[in-house]
């Protein structure tokens, strides 16, 4: 565990997971202050070295604010906090996070957010699509995201940000285990490396 006031990651860190929640009360913009906290430079350097980074929910917002991922997350189009299981389409299996799924497969992860409305300009969208970097889309519109985008990958495919919570779908008691595949794939990659 690295504290936001730390300025270095533990030695030998393979994967940085930036979790959801409400960092700094979502003041200014969601994730904006966290993305400038002392640990941020270490996370950016880790990603620059080819390290794995997973950002979920507020973590996704933080990664866009760090500019590790393009675009921005805005207030949900319906203005309400949404909290329910969401059906997602796996858009690419070409990443350590998604290689265990099938392209086009439907998985269900919970969503729980107020600001998950993904926005990117047309040029960025074209690039994301052209480089096969959209990881997940919503099967049905949930928050106004452009092209129903739920999660995207970095250029080197080792940084994933997504609004839905795969970590809340890893035990039958959660109501589903569709998220397990994502974490198993990551562990396999890290062990193999």
């Amino acid at each position: 565990m690295a504290w936001h006031k730390d300025d270095a990651l533990p030695r030998g860190t393979d994967l940085v997971a930036v979790p959801g929640g409400f960092s700094f009360g979502d003041y200014l913009r969601c994730g904006a202050i966290a993305a400038r906290s002392p640990i941020a430079a270490a996370v950016v350097a880790h990603a620059g070295r080819g390290g794995y980074v997973l950002g979920v929910c507020n973590g996704f917002q933080v990664l866009t604010e760090m500019e590790l991922l393009p675009g921005a997350l805005m207030r949900n189009a319906g203005l309400k906090f949404i909290c329910h299981p969401a059906a997602l389409r796996v858009e690419t299996t070409d990443s350590p996070f998604t290689e265990g799924y099938h392209k086009g497969e439907t998985v269900t992860f919970p969503v729980a957010h107020h600001d998950g409305n993904y926005f990117a300009d047309d040029e960025t969208l074209r690039r994301l699509r052209g480089e096969d970097r959209v990881a997940f889309t919503y099967r049905d519109p949930v928050n106004g995201s452009v092209e129903d985008i739920a999660g995207i990958l970095s250029e080197n495919r080792r940084v994933l940000g997504l609004m839905p919570h795969p970590e809340r779908a890893v035990d039958p008691a959660h109501g589903g285990t569709d998220g397990l595949t994502l974490f198993r794939g990551l562990v396999d990659q890290v062990v193999a490396a």
């Binding site: 913009r29 904006a32 400038r36 866009t64 393009p70 921005a72 805005m74 926005f119 990117a120 300009d121």
Partner: peptide, 9 residues
Amino acid sequence: EKLLANTVI
């Protein structure tokens, strides 16, 4: 540029 605005949006 660094904090107060997110110039993406």
